[in-house]
Design a protein around this nucleic acid. Sequence first.
DNA 1: TTAGTTAAGTGACATATAGTCACTAATTAG
DNA 2: CTAATTAGTGACTATATGTCACTTAACTAA
Lengths: 246, 246
Amino acid sequence: MTKPRVRATSEEWDYLREYRVGDYPTPLLTVDAVLFTFHDNQLQVLLVQRANHPAKGQWGLPGGFVALEQDADLDATVRRNLMAKTGVEPPHIEQLASYGSAHRDPRGWSVTVCYSALIAHQACAQQIDSVSDVRWVPLDEALVSPLAFDHQQLLVDARERLRQKALYSIVPAYALPDRFTLPQLQQLHEVLIGKTLQKKSFRRRIEQAELLIDTGEKRGEGGRPASLYRMRPNTADHFFVRNLES
Amino acid sequence: MTKPRVRATSEEWDYLREYRVGDYPTPLLTVDAVLFTFHDNQLQVLLVQRANHPAKGQWGLPGGFVALEQDADLDATVRRNLMAKTGVEPPHIEQLASYGSAHRDPRGWSVTVCYSALIAHQACAQQIDSVSDVRWVPLDEALVSPLAFDHQQLLVDARERLRQKALYSIVPAYALPDRFTLPQLQQLHEVLIGKTLQKKSFRRRIEQAELLIDTGEKRGEGGRPASLYRMRPNTADHFFVRNLES
DNA sequence: TTAGTTAAGTGACATATAGTCACTAATTAG
DNA sequence: CTAATTAGTGACTATATGTCACTTAACTAA
């Protein structure tokens, strides 16, 4: 399974026979994820109750160790861990940052590679409601709860990153169902940014960026029904504000 | 040195007596840095010739293992490694991303936390000229050289991130001397972005953002002398384009 | 059927930012 | 003193965003 990417010289093989992973004094490495969703007009995050020491019984972010024999890379590790808790793969995962210090874990020097992910609430609601050690928590509530390790800090940083994205991209849309309305998306952005936005400006920017496809369907609750949109597939970047290149 | 941040329960101590860092099968962890500078109208990066296996003799990025007994956190690790090669601390360091897979290092599953840093060429020119295993290499040249491990990929990603920053911030200015002229900064941004910029637009944006201080000094070579500026201290963000918050 | 309510979506003008380029300013070389 | 060179500005144009009243399309209750 562990195949060297670069062909080793014979001198290198002599070296490798002696030194392998596990022989080096290296920090403990974990991968964690902040999985966001938007539900009941609130930003929510997935929390998991720890089954093992340290911090047994406390709530924290979903994550875990790299499965050395199974995971091809870090992305695979985070996808496997999220799949284990939600039963599905989130449509958007991106690496946030790594946190490492001598004191963040009582076992000693440790590093976590933290990811940020987004998913529709309904996509995994049943799976999550059926177990007691995994649940959606409103972000504002999670931010003031005592969490395992430095997971509070990871939440703060993930939230700030997502807030930044709301200023110039439609990435937050992955926290909504496949088909969603522009007023829905605007509400999400307003919650993230923390202030109301101009309907006209918001729509104009998104329409001009051509990142969404109008499905033709409508959905209404009370007043005029809104058009349902979906993300345009194969879109590398999700920017809706002009940058200085164009 | 390794003091738990959170006070452990007695049950936890029983656990910790048994399990410590080193007992877990965990990937090899290293920290690498892409140190940029701007010199001779070129973007350059610091490369180091590897003294040990694997990839002994090949050129790669400065970096190394976490010193478990010495480094308080990952930032300390990267600063120590850069200090060892340049003799000084770069004025700007930020984390870029982490790269981990089963195959990027012949020793097995490994992860590197990659940083991006900027420094003035003159700040460490003597130190670097005095040794043969460390040198500045023009980025375009480094990008087509065979480098150790996946360091080529790290270079590509670091360059792209710095290019993005050039579009909306003056962070690249840390690759210049303490005092620099606006035409100098503009040239750097033009090299990064890959196209010429409008002098007036560039100046206007930077002046309006009030991120630079005019030192009153002048420097000229041929024509009218240009004003020398320095970075305004205590500036958290270095954005010079309006964002949608303001 | 119709008037009132609600929420979606648009028209049109005001304001702010960026692009363009000719012009002025300050220095050196000869 | 004049030409060459590079720094820096004035003033207009083009484009993007802010604002808000207005129209549209649904529902509900007389």
